[in-house]
């Protein structure tokens, strides 16, 4: 079973994502901000991280950079999942090392297709 870490400061979004991911047979973990996400990755590296952009304490972009500097081996695939839908944000996320990008709102098929693209579904 693959593991997905859902990182979002919105409990509702985490719940929706969890539900979809569980139907896709992922084991789901949650984090409410980038710092929690980093700690979670240090404890056990997930296969894939679903990452919000705007969050308190540590943003998605800061998490991505911190993950890059963390020395963690077998880095997880990172799929940004955000309402920041502009080209500028997308480019910045890719430059910072994101593997894929989902523009909110999304549905099950979208998420499944993006997970397929990164080889996780």
């Amino acid at each position: 079973m693959k593991t997905c870490l859902v990182v979002d400061d919105s409990k509702v979004i985490r719940k929706v994502a969890r539900h979809i991911l569980e139907t896709l047979e992922f084991e789901v973990r949650e984090a409410g901000d980038g710092r929690e996400a980093l700690e979670s990755c240090m404890a056990a590296v997930p296969d894939v991280v679903l990452l919000d952009w705007n969050m308190p304490v540590m943003s998605g972009m800061d998490f991505l950079r911190a993950l890059g500097d963390s020395g963690i081996e077998n880095k997880p695939k990172v799929v940004f999942c955000t309402t920041e839908n502009g080209m500028g944000h997308i480019r910045a996320a890719i430059e910072a090392g994101a593997d894929e990008y989902v523009m909110k709102p999304f549905d099950r098929e979208t998420l499944e297709s993006k997970l397929q693209i990164v080889g996780m579904a």
């Binding site: 997308i90 999304f106 549905d107 098929e109 979208t110």
Partner: peptide, 23 residues
């Protein structure tokens, strides 16, 4: 639409071959 393009289009290909026009 955003919905249509996200179905199956890898993000790098999207920014290579498409321009954003509003939504």
């Amino acid at each position: 639409s955003q919905f249509e393009i996200q179905r199956g289009m890898p993000i790098r290909r999207m920014i290579r071959w498409f321009d954003a026009e509003g939504e």
